[in-house]
Amino acid sequence: MNPMNVIIIGAGTAGCEAAYRLAKAGFTVELVEKECTPGGNLNNWFQLFPDRKQASALRQLLQQQVEHPSIRLHTDTVPVKIERQDARHYAMELDNGARLEGNALLVTTGFRTFDASRKEEYGYGIYENVITSVELENYFANRQILTSTGKRPERIGLIQCVGSRDEKMCNFHCSKVCCITAVKQAMELRELLPDAEILCFYMDMRMFGPGYEEMYREAQEKYNIKFVRGRLSEASENQAKQVVVKCEDTLVGKPMRMTLDLMVLMVGMEASDGSRWVAKELQLPLAPNGFIQPGDPHYATNRTAVEGVFVAGCATSPMNLTDTLTDARSAALAIGEFLNGNEHYN
């Protein structure tokens, strides 16, 4: 008898990890990826929190795993049609003409970073020295931080909650990882720019993961990173192409203004276009934040409202890498139980 086959949409962290676990459990996997290489958003990162590991190390590991003989990787392609014949039979058409068949479907379409230009008052795309956290990772990869005028920045501001916890942007949710990303990036900046003044503008410091609060403390104590509690209200550009920002220092209770040489927007997470497309195609309910709604917030985190369709990673909500990997393994387990007919939970 042929082994049962699982179709996975999205070869980011969750997709790769789940594919490998399913392959090891004896299933075959069709792994579909829109980019030409697997890795997803991980490909844009330089170092990871909390241990400052090179992102490339994890990326290489995931890429090696998907070389497993039971995994067929389809890159540079997206599904154009998904047919669900019944809970255990799926057919998927790809835009390259291929047709895949499977006995279960796993959605690992991940997230997209918030388009910072939507936050008009911060002037991203208009002001020269406003960049996003994703672009800063690229600066780190090149080991060079310069302003648009070729100057070493003397004061840098990292702005948290850009596109998160913001009703005006239709994003009520917290993107979870931006706080710790800001701490990590502030520390990396300090290493490259020992004399610069580095400030994080935050609403709350949500240090939810192991080692995160410790990292925050280290950033304050050893890296001399300054933290300002207050959400930026607006930014503008002066004649020297610096960014003039306004916020309230809510711990002082007064408005504050200052000039930054470089402003980094910690862009939040939103449901990816792929997630939205798959949800529509399969009629998967969405949570109010636009991510795919899991079957149950405790017992059925990898199931969806449609039997046989599973979900893992940031397609369901913002997650860090640790949780994404764990969630992917959990999804592999749930799919295994489903296909072997020994499910424990409905």
Binding site: D249, V252, K254, P255, M256, R257, M258, T259
Partner: peptide, 12 residues
């Protein structure tokens, strides 16, 4: 009346 001075923290 006189011109009020700004309450803002002028960090620069």
């Amino acid at each position: 009346f006189t011109i009020s001075s700004a309450r803002v923290i002028d960090y620069d």
